[in-house]
Design a protein around this nucleic acid. Structure first.
Lengths: 194, 194
DNA sequence: CAATTTGCCTAACACTTTTAGGAAAATGTA
DNA sequence: TACATTTTCCTAAAAGTGTTAGGCAAATTG
């Protein structure tokens, strides 16, 4: 009966490590209990249910990611800042694939609103200060950057870029060049479409 | 004992429908059996295991998506083709979220190589014929387009763009403008980085 | 030190996955 | 048509996960 000293925070941290080892989708309350050498039911004093666990891991990952992003952005502007932020996501995903997947976990709206997730959009927006974009375009650009960062990282992790010739490192650097060029001369809306 | 007439194809199709209803991650062999009014064990005459089921749903989705992409691309070139292909992914994801998620399912290398997945890269490459890109750059561009399509669709489906002001429809159209502009004047590699 | 709260336990139930072995239906063959 | 084989579905059962209920001992509080 000696108490192990479980807390939601320790569970979330251990859950994050577990996610990195076995993949976020295979994180299980049972396995977590096993790692603490404790019976499964005991975790239910700390967690509402297994979704609660996943949510906490997601929040942890979002927080870690936001911290790193803030560090990376400090003192940088323009393309330098763009590259730094992009690398934060990519490096994090490679070092912590389970946590990165967790950060993508669909949170309910209130939880999401209170999460570090909102900081990410703000930091992406901060990058755009170095470029000359005014309001509606700024939001479009934030969304595009988010799409590229997330899309690239996801496809790369999934092995999508590992087969063919130019290595992913080079594509990544060229993608940064492309985004920088694009933001510098952001095109006006085409008349045919909008 | 009357035979229901199960086949792997029917199971995969029903699995795809189930995925659209409950989400790909909640597709379960048990639920599928229930829908055919058959005992769970019976499905194991047709499926190796639950991963097998998910693989078949993924292959089905990749195929459907490739067919639609091929149709959309027929007779189009340049920006027109770019928009058509991008819309195929987005529309498919919205109409069939479970199938779209299935298409992202990580297949083992041999299965992936034999899947319709390879056609997708080819079709994206086909779009670039309308732009003037030569070999290493063409691959970089294919990867960038893939990243944007997938990233945008994923974030949009996850509700990431539903809160703030300019609606997602507008951002989408501006994203198409941006990609077209980018492909038209694809930047040379920056000297500092590569 | 007594009272209360908290943390972990056992027990139990529901559900999913998967294997083994049987019986009836479908199919092929003489 | 009659018989042999294969296929499809079944029952039974084991193992794993999620979750709730209720209990007892440890920690905390007054």
């Amino acid at each position: 009966m000696a108490r192990v000293g479980l807390t939601v925070d320790r569970l979330a941290r251990a859950g994050a490590e577990l996610a990195d080892e076995v993949g976020f989708e295979h994180v299980t309350v049972s396995e977590l209990a096993r790692r603490f050498d404790v019976k499964v039911a005991s975790l239910y004093s700390h967690l509402k249910n297994s979704r609660d666990l996943k949510t906490r891991i997601a929040l942890l990952a979002l927080e870690e990611l936001a911290d790193r992003a803030a560090d990376a952005l400090a003192g940088r502007a323009g393309k330098d800042a763009l590259i730094a932020l992009a690398n934060v996501y990519r490096d994090y995903a490679r070092a912590h694939p389970g946590r990165y997947a967790a950060a993508q976990f669909r949170l309910d709206p209130e939880t999401a609103a209170a999460s570090a997730g909102v900081k990410h959009a703000q930091m992406t927006r901060a990058i755009l200060r170095g470029y000359n974009l005014t309001e509606p375009d700024q939001t479009h650009a934030v969304r595009l950057l988010g799409s590229v960062f997330h899309g690239y990282v996801t496809l790369e992790m999934g092995g999508g870029f590992s087969h063919s010739a130019p290595d992913s490192e080079e594509t990544w650097s060229r993608t940064m060049d492309a985004l920088d060029a694009l933001l510098r001369s952001w095109p006006a809306p085409s008349t045919t479409t909008g």
